[in-house]
């Protein structure tokens, strides 16, 4: 098989942005450089054209076909966050890193939520698109 004729697997952000309007201002988002595929897994065709109506149908495609939307999976564990943000001395010093996870959660929760839950995932305080922590009372 010719090396050039293989199918591409990673599609890049443009593939997603063909259909999805970004919900955030890319210029301001600190995670603007993080590709969609990092957390949303590899894009697969999740907008499937069908001929018949379906409760899941939310939009119409060109040519009168219906489009059935299936949710993309997302990794909501801490691992995708820690891959980049756990403290390692080899990382650039200016890169935001968490030296002590327990302390980070304890201090962070006190500041934002007023109570402590060290078992909560990163997403409890941080929006992946705008990683800055929510302010108090906004969850």
């Amino acid at each position: 098989m010719e090396a050039s004729s293989l199918a591409t697997i990673h599609k890049g952000d443009d593939y997603c942005l063909d259909c999805h309007e970004p919900e955030w201002d890319m210029a301001d988002a600190k995670h603007a450089n993080v590709p969609c595929e990092s957390c949303h897994f590899l894009p697969k065709p999740h907008a499937i054209a069908t001929d018949k109506a379906d409760p899941a149908i939310k939009a119409k495609a060109d040519g009168g076909k219906y489009v059935k939307l299936e949710l993309m999976p997302i990794d909501k564990t801490e691992q995708p966050c820690l891959n980049c943000h756990i403290f390692l001395p080899s990382r650039p010093a200016k890169f935001p890193q968490i030296k002590d996870q327990a302390k980070h959660k304890k201090d962070g929760w006190k500041k934002t939520m007023g109570e402590v839950d060290t078992k909560a995932p990163c997403g409890r305080c941080h929006n992946s698109h705008f990683p800055k922590a929510f302010s108090k009372g906004v969850a």
Binding site: S4, T8, P45
Partner: peptide
Amino acid sequence: GMAGMLIVTLIPKSSSGQRIHNIEE
């Protein structure tokens, strides 16, 4: 010669054969 062939294979198609995404490539 390969370049022409690639254009065809790259178009993602739905199960009914209709093109959904107009991808960057």
